[in-house]
């Protein structure tokens, strides 16, 4: 997230086309970064594959949109490549990949919702199961 924020701020400071591209990267990176930070660590690898796929899709779509010569090129039924890339890459593909990956994740893992990337003190993140009030997760 820090990198996305840095890109957005740098873009605002730089201005121009390069600045706009940096800002675009930051703008799509911030919600993706929060999703990564909030996602269950060590969860089923399919979830991470879905997340990675969605991230790649968003990044590719952003690159096409920010490249005018590519974006203008007619692709299908007279529609410009950039518009189709935006619809598919920024909306449909992330929606399907993230949705299916979350739905296929085994119950109990995703429910814990610890921060991504492990703890700051280097401890291994682990699934603690219950809700912290003495109740065990009903799904286990």
């Amino acid at each position: 997230m820090s990198a996305a924020l840095l890109a957005a701020i740098s873009g605002l400071l730089v201005g121009g086309r390069a600045g706009a591209a940096l800002f675009a990267g930051g703008a799509v990176g911030l919600p993706l970064g929060l999703l990564v930070a909030g996602s269950p660590p060590g969860a089923w690898r399919g979830w991470w594959a879905g997340l990675a796929g969605a991230g790649l899709s968003v990044a590719a779509a952003t690159a096409v949109v920010m490249t005018p010569e590519w974006a203008r090129r007619p692709l299908a039924a007279g529609w410009p490549a950039g518009a189709l890339a935006a619809l598919v890459g920024l909306w449909l593909l992330p929606l399907v990949l993230l949705g299916v990956a979350a739905a296929l994740s085994p119950p109990g893992r995703q429910a814990v919702g610890e921060g991504a990337g492990g703890s700051e003190d280097g401890e291994e993140d682990r699934d603690e199961g219950g809700d912290g009030n003495g109740r065990r997760d009903a799904r286990r």
């Binding site: 919600p31 929060l34 930070a37 969605a54 968003v58 920024l90 909306w91 593909l93 993230l98 949705g99």
Partner: peptide, 14 residues
């Protein structure tokens, strides 16, 4: 509207 590809997962999973 395009962020709707990301926001459901952000809210529910994140």
């Amino acid at each position: 509207f395009l962020p709707l590809g990301l926001t459901p997962a952000l809210l529910a999973t994140g």
